[in-house]
Design a protein around this nucleic acid. Sequence first.
DNA 1: TTGTAGGCGTTATCAA
DNA 2: TTGATAACGCCTACAA
Lengths: 342, 342
Amino acid sequence: MTTIRDIARQLNLSVSAVSHALNGYPDISNETRQRVLLAVQEMGYTPNQAARQLRGKRVGALGYILPAHMPRFSDPFYSEFIAGLGDESASHQVGVLITSARPGEADEQRIYQEWVQAQKVDGFILNRLAQYDWRVRYLFEKGFPFVGLENSLDGIDFPRIEVDSQAGMHLLVRHLVERGFRRLAFIGGPESLKIQHDRLDGYRQALAEYNLPQNSEWVQAGDLTSARGYELARKLLAAPTPPDGIVCINDQTAFGVLHALNELGYEVGRAVALTGFDGVVNAEHTQPPLTTLNQPVYEIARRLVQMLLGEIGGQPACERSVRLQPELVARASTAGRVDSQP
Amino acid sequence: MTTIRDIARQLNLSVSAVSHALNGYPDISNETRQRVLLAVQEMGYTPNQAARQLRGKRVGALGYILPAHMPRFSDPFYSEFIAGLGDESASHQVGVLITSARPGEADEQRIYQEWVQAQKVDGFILNRLAQYDWRVRYLFEKGFPFVGLENSLDGIDFPRIEVDSQAGMHLLVRHLVERGFRRLAFIGGPESLKIQHDRLDGYRQALAEYNLPQNSEWVQAGDLTSARGYELARKLLAAPTPPDGIVCINDQTAFGVLHALNELGYEVGRAVALTGFDGVVNAEHTQPPLTTLNQPVYEIARRLVQMLLGEIGGQPACERSVRLQPELVARASTAGRVDSQP
DNA sequence: TTGTAGGCGTTATCAA
DNA sequence: TTGATAACGCCTACAA
């Protein structure tokens, strides 16, 4: 491994001269600097991260812990999100250290603590925030930099991006009403999740506003997977008064619901409407294509990295909280109501 | 930050005593060891990675560079794969350092080099191998540990998992023939990719074996995305002699093809058959559900991590090359041929 | 069984 | 403008 000493020896310079030349200090002759740069090129030298870090510099890595609930964890949201994190951090010459943990389990806590303690990363990106989130309180208390997608209710003001779920749900419900659907069910996610509350509240408020019937049986708690969406859809449709529209907390859930609807012979978009939330690419290619609320996942991920790097670099973003409006993407799954039971 | 010295001071011990106690040396009294362990617990001490690494130990991170071709990169294959990498590495107390780079571009090369040079990671996991892969040659030459999903043709024997694409294609084509489909097209990926060659070869061999018609217009080069699958399907079906079956290199491509087929009014599974490759969860929920060759992506990722850790720890796997057979998952998209043109 | 000392590669401080 | 030297936190011979 080529070290800074090798360069120094090669050029008959001192280590510190080389270091200065490399780190852009102004007190080095231009000629020397050129010689150093050349040698670095030729000998293929890259500063050793560990040594640098030990000396008090940044680690050059951001932490992200994938909330993988289950072994066969599969959600295109995350490939987009991670690609966004990766692209943006690569462009700033930092990496993203990733591992996965089942949310809420002891392991998860251990990993966060360890990465903080051992200084494995310079900061964290959080998503899938809980209403009251242990991670937020812990990191804040430690003074460790972090940013989040969504907020928590812990009363801590951290840099974050929020997607206006409630406004989105209003858009969606209005759209459904306009297309003639009135008996709207909601398939959500785990109780503890912040987005579950926001989206469910949005759904309820919108129902009230448009004088739509409310029915506690129409609200089901899923787990953000297609498999669960599939099951709950069958359950909903077997009820005495089945809904004529199903609003899902995310696209992945909607895919499962769509499967069930197709299998049961419903004409989706006509007899029953269906909507998702996220705007993943796959939603465009379902049969029928899925109406959804698009969040610019890739851009959000990039922005989060920017905010976090600012935070780490000691330049806290002037705007602590960025609020984005999801965009309604109307597709055939909500084409318009026509009575035709299977 | 709590350091090993803090612990030592607290207990009136020397640093090395603590170090020994922690690293399981036998020359420490049991009582002392207990006291140390307790203090470590109480004071929340975790060894500093950087210092440890500088001292010649492992970094505690594996590298994976996501081959993200495009901004809105979205493929459930990767969320499964990354979850597998994350879960397995977490259980061995190491992380996965991830970034993304467009395959083949200069950036990609720079990142690999930098991570090797700066010792950011202990080893690499490669996938999407090219027929002749720069990364394989580079890492091998540097003596840097790595494992791969798929092989390359560089004549280098590295630890890897291979999925028998050719056998898989045989299964698939036989299945299609049995169901009455004979004019089979193939939508593949970029020329340079190893899997493109393997799967295309498998397709061609199987066609020959079953005396099926070959037609160069039926072989299209996509890019593994749904969007491109959608376009190419429309092109294929507009041809003078359209196929009655479309074999896709991966599920994601097949999703786009399915969209096109549905849109054009084909009865998928009857008039035209469609198959994917990967076995992502979403393939189960399409309309109709997609016949595909299942690879145990999650398990593969875990196994790769195990192999890589063995390699790093100086215990090269006895089996350098694990060969897996993909499993045919027959679903409605290949139900059986019935003549009914739209 | 415990303590002392040297060094891993960098950067920062100070002196030349 | 450059050079010597001291940390950073940890591990490990070797000495006590």
